[in-house]
């Protein structure tokens, strides 16, 4: 029970990091990035390939994150321009279809060129005992990176001028323009940031198990569930939802069985939509 709980928190932090990237883009633009998991895994595959050439882990990881970020950045600067010109439902539908297409393309590319390429970062060192539960150094390092990333993000959105600028566009785009904020720049920035965060979550998850082409769709689905439960557009909500869902995930697979966990997570998302459509924290406070 205790170990399932701790495992759930470790996993949940990863879920939170997965949801943040998706929630930011949706909150800002109304585009539901259904290629989020694919972009994440693409970054991990790049890291794996580079490390295969003998490049040390850290520069390989930075390059992988850059690739994930660059893919979304390029999309924002090209085809997304058409989406931004639309309003309301048309924008949401068009964005969704477009990102679905991008996801298929990345899936196809990975299946064609790198079907068995997997990133598995083995973190050395003996397991460390926390509250009497032996935790692997890999999951502890992944959790530490994720917590630091979460704190940096929250501080960025609260304390910096650009961070406040992003939130202003999420809350009132016209008000933001009148304050001198350029929404187009903010969108490009957030797309790049979201891509880097996607790449990062694939890297941290590879510290506890190998990540490859077969993880793409489950990543996207999890990101979607976390974003819905956390409230679309909310950074702190995504992390809170991630941890809760991680615990639910581990407990249900501990007491019921692994086969049922995804269903239970989907039910959590559905219940959130019915009971509290704006998410756990109830507002896009970021």
């Amino acid at each position: 029970m205790k170990s399932a709980l701790l495992d759930g928190i470790v996993l949940g932090l990863q879920y939170g990091l997965l949801g943040v990237g998706l929630t930011l883009i949706y909150g800002l633009t109304g585009v539901l990035n259904l290629a989020h998991g694919q972009i994440a895994v693409l970054g991990a595959v790049v890291v794996s390939l580079l490390m295969g050439t003998g490049l040390p882990a850290v520069p390989a990881i930075l390059a992988g994150l850059a690739v994930s970020g660059a893919v979304l950045l390029a999309l924002d600067l090209s085809v997304m321009r058409v989406v931004y010109r639309q309003e309301g439902e048309t924008r949401i539908l068009l964005g969704l279809l477009l990102m679905l297409g991008v996801g298929f393309m990345i899936d196809g590319f990975l299946a064609w060129r790198y079907p068995i390429e997997q990133l598995g970062l083995r973190i050395g060192g003996d397991p460390i005992s926390i509250l009497g539960v032996r935790m692997s150094t890999g999951s502890l390092l992944a959790s530490a990176i994720t917590i630091v990333t979460g704190l940096v993000l929250v501080a960025f959105f609260r304390l910096t001028s650009l961070g406040r600028g992003v939130r202003s566009v999420i809350q009132d785009e016209m008000g933001a323009r009148l304050c001198g904020v350029n929404p187009a720049f903010v969108r490009t920035f957030v797309f790049g940031l979201s891509g880097v965060l996607a790449g990062l979550v694939a890297v941290t998850r590879s510290m506890t198990g190998p990540i490859g082409a077969n993880n793409t769709i489950s990543f996207t689905v999890l990101a979607l569930i976390v974003a819905v439960v956390g409230g679309l557009g909310s950074v702190s909500g995504a992390f809170l939802a991630g941890v809760l869902l991680g615990v639910v995930d581990r407990l249900s697979s501990f007491y019921i069985g692994t086969y049922i966990t995804t269903i239970i997570l989907l039910v959590c998302a559905a219940l959130t939509i019915v009971a509290k459509p704006s998410g756990l924290l109830g507002r896009p406070s970021t």
Binding site: S161, Q171, D172
Partner: peptide, 19 residues
């Protein structure tokens, strides 16, 4: 008015000075 409803008074004012 186009204020930012979920931001504090201070944050709204800070955004006035952006960038």
């Amino acid at each position: 008015r186009h204020l930012f409803p979920q931001m504090s008074v201070t944050e709204n004012l800070l955004l006035g000075a952006f960038p």
